[in-house]
Write a protein that binds this DNA or RNA. Structure first.
Length: 850
RNA sequence: GGGGCUAUAGCUCAGUUGGCUAGAGCGCAGCAUUCACAUUGCUGAGGCCCAUGGUUCGAGUCCAUGUAGCCCCACCA
């Protein structure tokens, strides 16, 4: 098969991927060192976005590189049921059909969402294939697969039995639109313009009044105290008395608590324990009653005066303000900016509401995690995230794992119908009612927070505790994830991993930043700046996309999606393609018996290859992928294409060219898997797929002296080109005197330097090629030389500056004494070199001036 | 209030443990053209590496302070 004139990725990608899949080469191979990556499972509810393209690119590079090193690589894919997220996506679809979740029973809804996700599975799996991810599909895991669910149950059971799980009535962050609670970190806080109202609460004994400040006057209906700071002398005589709560006929006490800041507002705070987390804490300390005045539907309850019942929070606020104003209790109101929690999906204001939920007593787990992190059991990239995670774990609060939605893993606990305090663990979650010891138990209707089950991902996917995979591949070699998941996911994987298995879940964590649009703005559907990776693949190819998002990538920092980088990647692919095409033309494939360096360029390229390989390994081993890409990009484009191939046109060393191509293909393969395999297949290289090649290609070492000889010629060519361009000359001959290297390379010089001839002998008039430091002249006319004089003068002054700098450095006794000897020697050599070059320049100038 | 990150060419960004002449891609200017590649080749212009101070023989790199921008956490009666 012949290579086409240019690389058209769409003609090859699908075929190449199915070839890989058929050969089951993605399953762990051989008996090398185990190397394991588990994919952070994308949500099973939609399309992959640019962030996924980056994630898969980075992970796939790791996986493919380690296969090349001969490691036994497991690269495990999966999908996340993404509880709440998916239910929201599904509900939006229902909305388009004019329906809502309330039109279905729980079971129906669950089944519908399940088939919705099932339908989408093929879609997003095929997108992963298009990205070229070399995942082992045989290990594909869904977060609702039986073993994963069983694992979540087992972990819950262990915690339940060890007393780490408790049920408590706490204030939870509740979205009244979606009807579910959220963990603290899921609440989206935004600055909002509100008002601060001041309300007069008369003392019951008529000895005065106390004015409280509030942003939420409607909650006054649920006040059960007024608090002041114990050190605040303005109020010290009121503590212990009671006030009459306006609009109600209740009397509530005035208490003293450190929580109150005397400098804020009036220094007096109304306490609404059922609707404010701080008030909740105060109430606990003072044993105050809790009075719920806002229900789960977001409306005022029946416990408020008739006039306010069933009003929404907003309506209630207006009504209360109106009423207290009318009755003369409102003393003041002013604009006030404060931050308000919102549902991150629908924007509804989050209400803190009292609800019985399951909580994990997280401190003990966090402390263990902290210990291991501080011992350095996990390498963080970037390292700054370690500090951030430590701070988070130090201040962590108990974790609410109950969610009032349908789509998720049911919490396997049942409540005694006759004794609400009696909860038992049972895995028969497909039943609503079970009987144990003649007692009737009803299942908790709630499901787990998605993150509870996905926190077990590193070991549940590997079949903890018995499966061989777990024994071979745990802890994971690396967890690659977005930086936004450090707290919700990474932290919990570490805590649960240690808790369940006794070991950290992964040895290294590589965090990538978010991909933004070209201006650095977050991609979002509503702004309309989202770029679909699948469209980019169609336009430029999968490898080009990968190279584009990877070039200049650095862990931890956000990166814009830059189209020109993708185009650069596409061009690079084409470059490599054409290198292969050149070699294909020159050779009869299949004769690679002896690889032998014949010419100086052969020796030179072998030396550069060797050096590149060493640096490549170093960079790849330290996860510095974008630098490794940069390295091979310039090796291939600058050294191989621009110099070696060009030099080869006279005297192609076919075996070496082929071997070199193989070497390059293997190094590039993690970065451009489709392209490299396509070339490999088309040229019928051995072994039958590039993936089976489990090592970097070894080539003979070039001879140093011969390599240096080529470098001299190369420098000469560059200098000559530069002079010819600068003087705008053409039809120039090059003369040399007693220079065997120039004689040896006369043909190449003629071809590449753009001169019409290379001859022995000094021209009558002409200019020396000063930089080359050889007896070489160009027969450039006097007029043209004059154009060059300006440039020569610039060069002279630059070189003089450099010489001065070197001289000063070497005159500094501290430098001689303290800098490393090699460095000092290097400086000395540079000084000599600089003097020589300057001398050449000055001589030339002198010649011109006469 | 606590913590973190970023500041380098017109744009987007690299720059490992400090090492001397700071790099790339794109863009820009000029030249070239059937011979692997216009998804090309060649030549070139473009930078007080945010500011100030410090450590050091030597600072884009380390330390301190400041300025600007971004992010996370907590709180906001």
């Amino acid at each position: 098969m012949k290579l086409a004139k240019s690389y058209q990725p769409e003609d090859y990608e699908a075929g190449i991927y199915s070839l890989w899949e058929k050969s089951s080469i993605f399953t762990p191979q051989g008996s090398g060192e185990p190397y394991s990556i588990v994919v952070p499972p994308p949500n099973a509810n939609g399309n992959l976005h640019m962030g996924h393209a980056l994630t898969f690119a980075i992970e796939d590079i790791m996986a493919r590189y380690h296969r090349i090193k001969g490691d036994r690589v497991l690269f495990l894919p999966g999908a996340d049921h993404a509880g709440f997220e998916t239910q929201v996506v599904y509900e939006r679809q229902l909305e388009k059909e004019g329906k809502s979740r309330f039109d279905y029973s729980r079971e129906e809804l669950y089944r519908n969402v399940y088939s919705f996700v099932e339908q989408n599975k093929d879609n997003f799996q095929s997108q992963i294939r298009k990205l070229g991810a070399s995942v082992d599909w045989g290990h594909y895991t869904f977060t609702l697969d039986d073993p994963i669910v069983k694992r979540a149950f087992a972990t819950f059971k262990k915690m339940f039995e060890e007393g780490l799980i408790y049920r408590g009535e706490r204030l939870v962050n509740f979205c009244t639109f979606h009807g579910t609670a959220f963990a603290d970190i899921e609440v989206d806080y935004k600055e909002e313009q509100g008002k601060l109202w001041q309300i007069r609460y008369p003392l019951t004994d008529s000895s005065g009044e106390i004015v409280v400040a509030t942003t939420r006057p409607e909650t006054m209906l649920g006040d059960t105290a007024v608090a002041v700071n114990p050190k605040d002398s303005r109020y010290s005589n009121m503590v212990g008395k009671t006030v009459k709560l306006p609009l109600t006929n209740r009397e509530i006490p005035v208490i003293a608590d450190e929580y109150v800041d005397p400098k804020f507002g009036t220094g007096a705070v109304k306490i609404t324990p059922a609707h404010d987390p701080n008030d909740y804490d105060v109430a606990k300390r003072h044993d105050l009653p809790f009075m719920t005045v806002i229900g789960f539907d977001g409306k005022l309850t029946h416990d408020v005066p008739v006039a306010f019942r069933s009003l929404t929070v907003q309506e209630g606020r207006a009504a209360v303000v109106n009423e207290i104003e009318k009755q003369g209790f409102l003393t003041n109101s002013e604009d006030y900016t404060h931050s308000v929690g919102h549902c991150y999906k629908c924007g509804t204001i989050i209400e803190p509401l009292l609800k019985e939920q399951w909580f994990i007593d997280i401190k003990p787990l966090a402390n263990k995690a902290l210990e291991r992190i501080r011992e350095g059991d996990i390498t963080f990239m970037p390292s700054s995230k370690q500090t951030q995670l430590e701070r988070y774990l130090e201040n962590i609060k108990d974790w609410n794992i109950s969610r009032q939605i349908v789509w998720g893993i049911p919490i396997p606990v049942f409540q005694n119908e006759d004794d609400p305090g009696d909860w038992i663990y049972d895995e028969r979650v497909d039943q609503e009612i079970i009987t144990v010891n003649n007692k009737t138990y009803r299942r908790d209707p709630d499901v787990f927070d998605t993150w509870f089950s996905s926190s077990s991902w590193p070991y549940s996917t590997l079949g903890y505790p018995d499966r061989q995979d777990f024994k071979d591949f745990y802890p994971l070699s690396v967890m690659e994830s977005g930086i936004d998941l450090v707290m919700p996911w990474i932290s919990r994987m570490i805590m649960l991993g240690i808790y369940v298995t006794g070991n950290v879940p992964f040895k290294r964590i590589y965090l990538h930043g978010m991909i933004t649009d070209e201006r650095g703005k977050k991609m979002s559907k509503s702004v309309g700046n989202v770029i679909d990776p699948m469209e980019i693949i169609e336009l430029y190819g999968s490898d080009a996309l990968r190279l584009g998002v990877l070039s200049g990538h650095t862990p931890g920092s956000n990166q814009p999606y830059v189209q020109s980088k993708v185009i650069g990647g596409r061009n690079f692919c084409n470059k490599l393609w054409n290198i292969a095409r050149f070699i294909e033309d020159k050779s009869t494939i299949g004769t690679m018996d002896q690889i032998e360096a014949i010419t100086d360029p052969d020796h030179w390229i072998l030396q550069v290859y060797q050096l590149t390989k060493i640096n490549y390994l170093k960079l790849m081993d330290s996860y510095r992928f974008s630098e490794a890409y940069d390295l091979i990009y310039h090796f291939i484009w600058d050294d191989v294409a621009d110099w070696y191939i060009e030099s080869s046109k006279n005297q192609p060393n076919i075996n070496l060219l082929l071997a070199l191509l193989k070497g390059i293909l293997v190094m590039v393969h993690p970065f451009a898997p489709f392209l490299t395999e396509t070339i490999w297949q088309t040229l019928n290289l051995e072994p039958n797929t590039i993936l089976a090649n489990q090592q970097l290609i070894e080539l003979p070492q070039g001879d140093h002296a011969k390599s240096e000889r080529f470098k001299i010629a190369k420098n000469l060519i560059t200098s000559v080109r530069s002079i010819i361009k600068a003087t705008g000359s053409s039809g120039i001959k090059l003369y040399y005197h007693e220079e065997p290297i120039v004689e040896l390379y006369s043909t190449l010089i003629k071809q590449l330097a753009g001169v019409i001839g290379v001859e022995e002998g000094e021209p009558e008039h002409g200019m020396a090629v000063t930089e080359a430091n050889l007896n070489v002249w160009l027969d450039i006319s006097k007029e043209q030389i004059d154009k060059y004089l300006v440039r020569l003068n610039e060069k002279i002054s630059i070189e003089q500056g450099r010489l001065k700098q070197l001289q000063a450095r070497l005159d500094n006794p501290s430098y001689i004494a303290q800098a490393p000897e090699e460095l000092v020697n290097e400086s000395r050599d540079q000084l000599i070199e600089s003097e020589q070059i300057l001398e050449n320049y000055l001589q030339e100038k002198f010649r011109f001036s006469n």
